[in-house]
Design a protein around this nucleic acid. Structure first.
Length: 576
DNA sequence: GCCGTTTTCGGCCCGACTGTTTTCAGTCG
């Protein structure tokens, strides 16, 4: 029986929700399925394993008796009879229509019933033939919106990498901060939560009553079109395809609005439910006790109203942070200033751009105590991997540099290839001369889950194995992670005291947030590393730190927060 | 379908904007 991933189970529940929604079924039932999907997607362990262990699924938030039964059925049979039945009564591509801007469940149902439109193709044809005018509630503008959405393929939900969206957002914030009447301008939304990908940019501005902020926003350069225009809220589409939302409020409401638009939606919903229980109300304008407004100028006001700790944006995903904040037991998230070194980088010995010395001096300028030089090894020909002789030469150069350089120590290392059979592609005697190794899979991504997992577990059995680099091999939006049993990998890492990397390259961010949390819970240390190939790349550390914070990591969970002596002591115990 | 220190029924987050209407439903975040 193939293992069913959490992602697949969540997809199935979302499909059920879509179909029930189109049927006009109880909206709260629809929401229950979506909530369950979200819980499953964000859960650090696989449902398959939980079912195997006889774990009580109803103890998870949003999962009751019925959905627990359905999860068990999916895990055990790979299918769900209820969903199969729903699929039989609906055309297979009907739910695609929900993605078209302007179309929700009600309108999709109308299109289906009145015009037998069952797919995007059908919709396009009906538009050409001018049939939509006949449907009640479909006026000229709505039809134009649908037509435009279809033409520009707006239904293909494109997501931008954090590193693509953040500079654009920062550019706009800088402009808006200078406008007349603007008091604060902040990034909100998933971008503020530092999610690895975002689908749009959300901004919140606190302004005096008379201000130029909205006018400037609507007249920014590089606007493709104005999607929506209001006194307090507007949306623009930039030429590069990014959608930007600006919300304008008075200073007294700024905290509540910033909180509202930072989300996540699930986090906000949980807080609002708590408010209702206490006869309070939270909305974008503040927090109320009965008719009395008790706060809203600062985000902190909202958490104060419940006697809770302030929750950092990166944690607001409704993954248990609210319960911890109530107990005043939130983790103290790692800061970039906790980082004392970088344990993964390349030089001109392999595919990096500059010599060792330049990397070392740049690292020193960043305030680091140490770096590890980790050039590729011989097996990786495309990256000019070093043979043992070249590595030997590099080690001598590092010795010489360590003699002369002040204030920074260069550790000897290499990014060693893990071969298909789980062996490392350098001899044991050479590996023994290194301070640490960074080991990675660069080939044969398509092995079966069983073989890929065994490959890595066997590599970890090598006494010279220190850190597993970019553990899932994914490239965001380009390459799926390879199939491995991450729980088994983490268990093995824990046994041997070796570590997993959080690769800070914005297109990797590998481990992801959920796996980071899992590593913390398992008791496995993480190395947050830039995998730099140039001087500028060393500054990618911030992306790694944000992802680490999303994974609830604290200073103690991250190995490169250790001082040099502490790190060296730890490395000796792993080797010994 | 889920949930419960007002528990096994009766609720379920909240508001802006749009378009098509004459007072509001649908969509969106």
């Amino acid at each position: 029986m193939p293992r069913v991933e959490n992602r697949k189970i969540a997809e199935m529940f979302n499909e059920i929700a879509d179909l029930l929604d189109i049927d006009g079924d109880n909206p709260f039932k629809v929401r229950a399925y979506r909530n369950a999907a979200r819980t499953i997607l964000g859960y650090p362990r696989q449902m398959t394993d939980l079912v195997d262990e006889g774990f009580d699924l109803t103890s998870l938030r949003g999962i009751g008796k019925e959905i627990a039964k359905k999860i068990t059925e999916i895990v055990q049979t790979g299918k769900l009879a209820y969903l199969e039945k729903l699929r039989k009564t609906h055309p297979p591509q009907l739910e695609d229509l929900l993605k078209v801007p302007g179309l929700g469940p009600k309108r999709v149902r109308l299109l289906h019933e009145l015009l037998h439109i069952n797919s995007l193709e059908d919709l396009e044809k009906a538009l050409h033939e001018g049939k939509l005018q006949n449907i009640p509630g479909f006026g000229e503008k709505l039809i134009a919106k649908i037509e435009n959405g279809i033409q520009t393929r707006r239904y293909e939900a494109h997501r931008f990498k954090l590193s693509e969206a953040l500079p654009v957002a920062e550019w706009i914030v800088k402009i808006l901060k200078k406008t007349k009447g603007a008091m604060h301008v902040e990034i909100a939304g998933s971008l503020r939560r530092r999610k690895e990908t975002v689908h749009d940019i959300d901004l919140v501005a606190a302004c005096e009553e008379t201000n130029d902020t909205m006018v400037y926003f609507l007249n920014l350069p590089k606007i493709q079109k104005i999607v929506m225009k209001g006194n307090t809220r507007s949306t623009i589409l930039l030429e590069n395809g990014m959608s930007v939302d600006l919300r304008l409020v008075g200073v007294e409401n700024f905290g509540a609005t910033l909180h509202h638009f930072t989300g996540s939606k699930a986090h906000n919903i949980t807080l609002r439910k708590m408010a209702v229980e206490k006869k309070m109300k939270i909305n974008e304008y503040g927090i109320w006790q009965g008719k009395k407004r008790i706060g809203g100028e600062k985000e902190q006001d909202i958490y104060d109203a419940f006697g809770m700790q302030y929750i950092e944006p990166e944690m607001r995903e409704n993954r248990g942070e609210i319960a911890l904040a109530q107990k005043h037991a939130l983790p103290k998230l790692i800061l970039q200033s906790d980082i004392k070194g970088d344990l993964h980088m390349h030089t001109s010995y392999s595919d990096g751009l500059v010599p060792i010395k330049e990397m070392a001096l740049q690292a020193k300028a960043l305030g680091y105590e140490y770096i590890a030089i980790t050039d590729h090894t011989q097996h990786l020909k495309v990256a000019h991997g070093m043979d043992e002789k070249q590595l030997q030469k590099q080690l001598e150069e590092i010795d010489a540099l360590n003699e002369t350089l002040e204030g920074i120590t260069i550790l000897k290392s290499a990014e060693v290839d893990i071969l298909e059979d789980g062996s490392l592609d350098m001899s044991q005697s050479v590996l023994a001369a290194l301070d640490l190794t960074v080991c990675s899979v660069h080939t044969k991504f398509n092995l079966s889950r069983e073989k890929q997992t065994q490959r890595i577990l066997k590599a970890m059995d090598n006494p010279h194995f220190t850190i597993l680099a970019h553990p899932t091999g994914r490239l965001i939006g380009l390459r799926e992670p390879y199939d491995i049993d991450m729980e088994a990998v983490m268990q093995k890492a824990k046994e041997h005291g070796c570590m997993l990397e959080l690769n800070a390259q914005p297109d990797r961010l590998d481990l992801n947030d959920i796996h980071c949390k899992m590593a913390k819970e398992t008791g496995v240390r993480i190395a947050v590393s830039t995998d730099a190939h140039s001087l500028n790349d060393l500054e990618l550390m911030r992306y790694g730190i944000w992802q680490a914070r999303r994974g609830w990591l604290e200073k103690e969970n991250v190995v490169n927060t250790l001082s040099l002596p502490a790190l060296q002591k730890l490395l000796r115990t792993i080797k010994g």
